[in-house]
Write a protein that binds this DNA or RNA. Structure first.
Lengths: 193, 193
DNA sequence: CAAAGTCATTGACTTAAGTCAATAAAAGAA
DNA sequence: TTCTTTTATTGACTTAAGTCAATGACTTTG
């Protein structure tokens, strides 16, 4: 198992010493996903946290048979359905690999069990959670205040490579519009030949 | 100071004994707000948590001089800008009383200082935080998946009295539409005379 | 009480997203 | 490579929200 990326990601948040990391690492597993493979299914209680070593995933919900992408997870990001785990309620979302992925996973339960003896686990969980809260808050504000067009160009600024790695219709879902509308938004701003 | 409501609210989440509560209560202040009075101003770092004893407040942001209401807080709800406090960044939002309000307030800093010696403080903060996270997540999903009309009728179901206590144009802001559009949505579903 | 201000409704019109269908382009599989 | 599937674009049209302006209802307050 290659821990370089996750160690770097954790160290960006909080210094962690090798022996503490090794203890946690004993509970880590590797999971390889094929393209289009589903990692976590709707209707099940989510028990796993993950770290994306490579690849890209998305979370989406279904309504009347239509998909609504709510989030993307790329290399060096943490992934998990904390709400489902914390409430022990079935997940409303499906998490799917959009490319072949390598994840490091650990059961929430195991990770939480380190909170008291390895303070860095608890602190890093708090930092990641706060970041997610902040992102969610920002997205909410953007959905209220910005036009679809503004949301699209903000996304390009924030995650430029996302646009190139993910089908456009999923970006449209994420922005809350139809794929045809996103195509027309792009056309509007395309320099005329 | 009347602590009945806050004690009941805390006890719903987690049992708390009177002596622990009394210690925390020493740091509580009462704050009375007139209608339209601003509790927390945009651009300042938010240092206070609050509990609404009576009245109703809203949080809103400004963009190009237009208001966008992001949340309402009614009796027996906790209020505060955790993100601003945690990041020590200026608040992007304004919190304003929509009716005469009585708040119990406590500085985040003081409340956090009880985390180790009074575990109920930490646990209740976690529960409130998780509930807010869940609500934010739900609202986000609703903005993506539901029509303005559906969002309006969901809101009526979830907070029936909100509609009667708050100007309609603020409800429209909260739903992400113009007040004229909300008026027409209501008209569509009004039984014809 | 009258006057001023605020808020909701309505009408006429504009704008942009949604829908449906056809085609083109790109990606994957045999 | 060719065939198939998936995805993106475009056109024609519908629908609903946005905009602007006028009016009426309701509050507030001097």
């Amino acid at each position: 198992m290659n821990f370089d990326a996750i160690i770097a990601a954790v160290n960006k948040m909080i210094p962690i010493n090798q022996s503490d990391f090794d203890i946690v690492a004993q509970k880590l597993s590797v999971r390889h996903l094929k393209k289009n493979e589903i990692w976590e299914q709707e209707g099940k209680i989510c028990q796993l946290m993950g770290f994306v070593n490579s690849g890209i995933l998305r979370q989406y919900s279904l309504k009347d048979g239509n998909e609504f992408t709510t989030d993307f997870f790329m290399e060096n990001e943490f992934i998990g359905n904390y709400i489902s785990y914390q409430t022990q309620q079935p997940s409303q979302t499906i998490t799917e690999a959009l490319e072949p992925c390598e994840l490091l996973t650990i059961p929430f339960h195991d990770f939480v069990s380190f909170y008291e003896c390895i303070p860095a686990t608890k602190k890093s969980a708090k930092i990641v959670g706060d970041q997610k809260l902040f992102q969610l808050y920002e997205k909410n504000t953007s959905l209220l205040m910005d036009s679809p067009e503004e949301r699209y160009y903000k996304l390009i600024e924030q995650k430029p490579d996302l646009i190139n790695r993910v089908p456009q219709y999923m970006i449209a879902q994420y922005l809350g519009i139809r794929p045809e509308s996103l195509s027309r938004i792009r056309k509007r701003h395309r320099p005329k030949k």
